[in-house]
Amino acid sequence: MNQRPSFLLDGAEVPFEPGQTVMQAALAAGRYIPHLCYHPEFTPHGSCKLCTARVNGRLMAACTTPAGIATEVESETEELNDLRRTLVQMLFAEGNHFCPSCEKSGNCVLQALGYDLGVMTAGFRHLFPDRPVDASHPEILLDFNRCILCELCVRAAREVDGKHVFSLAGRGLGKHLIVNAESGRLVDTDVKVTDKAVEVCPVGVILRKRVGFATPIGARRYDQSPISAQALADAPRPLERNHD
C-alpha cells in the first residue's frame, strides 16, 4: 500500500489525505504542532499564528496550509518556539489574565501553552485594558478580560449552532468580542447553555455559572499532563481507520 502522499515534519514522514492541512495531517500522525485558535471541529482561519512553521522554507500557519503544497516542514526549532513564546507573551500582555482568580485556570489552553513553551513572564508592558464583565445571562458569564480573539466561539456558533451569538467588532488593538444583541448583553441573544459556542472557549471568557472550581488543584486538565500530549490524545485520526 503506502502510496499515500506525505511530507517530512522535522525529519519524520507524515502521510496525508487530499484536502488535509499540515496541522490536520500532523495531528493525525501523532505529531504535535503548538496551536491555539485551531480546533479540529471548525474551519481553521490562522489568526493566532502559534502554529507558524517553515513549510518548504517559508513561514506559514500550519493550520491553514494545505498539506498538498508541503514537502518539508520544520516546527520543533528553537527559532519557532521562540516566536511562539513571544506570541503567548503578547496575548498575556494584551488582556487581563489574572490566573489566580480565574476558574478556567488549570483547564486553560493559553495557560497550558505558556507552561509547555516555558513562558515565565509576559515580558512586555501590560496593557491592562478596561473590559467590563457581562453577567446578564442567568446561566452564562462573559468575562471579556481574558479574551484572546481566537474566534472559536464565533465559528462554533456559526458552524455548529447555526446562530450568530458571538461576533467581532472594532479593529486593531480595539478589536473585541461582541454578542448579537442591540443591548450588547448576552441575555438578549438566543444563546443556550447547551450551545457548542459556550463550551468551546479555550480561556476563561465564556463560563457556565455555578460550576467553577469543581475540580481540585492538581486534578485539573493540564495539571495532569502537558497540552502537547493531550492535543494528540484528542486529535481525530482518520488515517488509522483507513489502515486496517
Partner: peptide, 21 residues
Amino acid sequence: FAHESCGFCTPCRVGTSMLVA
C-alpha cells in the same frame, strides 16, 4: 500601521501597538 492594523492576527494586532509604545 498600528492605527490601520485590522487586528486579525496576534503579531500585528499587538505588535504594531507595542512598537508604537
